[in-house]
C-alpha cells in the first residue's frame, strides 16, 4: 500500500469539504473494495476520509405511509438507509425485514460475514461495481440517493459500470425508497468471488408499477430490463417472468460464463425473484 493521509470526518459536510480539498482524496466507508485495491497498489489516494463513524450516516428509519385508505395492503412506508449503514445492519433490521424483506435478504447474501460487517450501502452504490447487488435493488425500487448537495434518482445515478452521477466533493448521505407492495431478488453468484454472475431484482410498487433491474450481466453495469418489466406488469407471476425470451445482446462474457449463459440466468433468476416476492 502506498502512503496515504487518514482523516476521520466529523460529519457529512466535513467529509464533503475534505473530499473537495484534494483531487486525489477518497471516501473510506467500509473499505471492502478500496482497501484491497490499495493493497494491490492499484489505487493511491493521497487522502482517505473515513466516514464510518458518522452517526448521521448510519441506521435505518421507516416512516409509516400517510394515505389511510389502503392500510391493509402491504408497502408504502418510506424507508431511509444511511450511507454508512453496514450490510450486516441492513440484513438484521427486523423492522426493515417486515417492510421490505427483499432488501434485507439481499444484504444477508453479500460477500461473507467479514464483508457484511464492514461494507456499507453507500460504498456499494458509489463504487457501482457492475456485479454489485445494491445497485440492482435501488434501481428496481426507484430509490432516491441523497447527497451532501442534492437528491438524485437511481435512474440518473447509475451511469455505467463503476460510474455514477456523483460530482467531485459530493458525498452520499442516505438512500430512500418507498416500500414496495412486492419485491424479490434472485442472485446467482460467481462461484469464485460470489459477486453476482446475474442478479435480478423485481419490484412492484403500491401503485402497481413494475420495475426489474439486472446486475452482473450487463456489459456496462446495472440496467433495467424492459421485456421483463412489461411481462410482469401484465402478469406478476413466476411463469410470466420465465416466459420472457431474454437475448444475449449487450451481455457480458467472461471466464465464468458467456452471454448466452447469463441470458438464461436472467430468466431463471427473474422467475425465482418473483417466486420469493
Amino acid at each position: 500500500m502506498y502512503t496515504t493521509k487518514y482523516h476521520k470526518a466529523s460529519d457529512a459536510a466535513n467529509a464533503a469539504s475534505l473530499l473537495g480539498a484534494s483531487p486525489e482524496a477518497k471516501i473510506l466507508a467500509g473499505g471492502q473494495t478500496l482497501i484491497p485495491t490499495m493493497k494491490q497498489r492499484l489505487a493511491a489516494p493521497t487522502d482517505l476520509i473515513d466516514i464510518s463513524g458518522i452517526a448521521e450516516l448510519r441506521g435505518v428509519t421507516i416512516e409509516a405511509r400517510k394515505k389511510l385508505g389502503v392500510l391493509k395492503a402491504k408497502g408504502g412506508e418510506t424507508i431511509t438507509i444511511g450511507a454508512a449503514t453496514t450490510h450486516y445492519e441492513v440484513a438484521n433490521n427486523a423492522d426493515l425485514a417486515a417492510a421490505c424483506p427483499a432488501i434485507t435478504g439481499l444484504a444477508a447474501n453479500i460477500g461473507d460475514p467479514a464483508v457484511r460487517h464492514r461494507g456499507t450501502i453507500g460504498g456499494s452504490i458509489a463504487n457501482n461495481d457492475p456485479a454489485a447487488d445494491y445497485p440492482a435493488a435501488l434501481l428496481a425500487l426507484g430509490a432516491t440517493i441523497h447527497t451532501t448537495s442534492r437528491d438524485i434518482s437511481a435512474d440518473d445515478f447509475f451511469t455505467g459500470m463503476f460510474s455514477t452521477a456523483l460530482n467531485d466533493g459530493e458525498v452520499i448521505k442516505s438512500v430512500s425508497f418507498q416500500a414496495p407492495a412486492a419485491a424479490g431478488y434472485g442472485k446467482f453468484p460467481v462461484p469464485a468471488s460470489r459477486y453476482a454472475m446475474v442478479g435480478v431484482f423485481v419490484a412492484k410498487s403500491i401503485d402497481g408499477d413494475v420495475r426489474v433491474s439486472v446486475t452482473g450481466a450487463g456489459d456496462d453495469g446495472v440496467f433495467r430490463h424492459a421485456g421483463l418489466e412489461s411481462a410482469l406488469t401484465s402478469d406478476w407471476s413466476p411463469a410470466s417472468a420465465a416466459g420472457v425470451n431474454v437475448g444475449a445482446e449487450g451481455l457480458l462474457s467472461d471466464i465464468h460464463g458467456n452471454a448466452a449463459y447469463r441470458a438464461n440466468l436472467i430468466g431463471v433468476m427473474a422467475k425465482r425473484a418473483v417466486e420469493s416476492a
Partner: peptide, 23 residues
C-alpha cells in the same frame, strides 16, 4: 468442479486472484 487456471492467448493469467480462481 471449481478450480482451473485460465490463460488468455497472450499468456496472461486471467485467474490470478480469488476473485476468479475458485477454491
Amino acid at each position: 468442479m471449481f478450480e482451473g487456471v485460465v490463460y488468455d492467448p497472450d499468456g496472461q493469467q486471467l485467474s490470478a486472484s480469488y476473485m476468479d480462481y475458485c477454491m
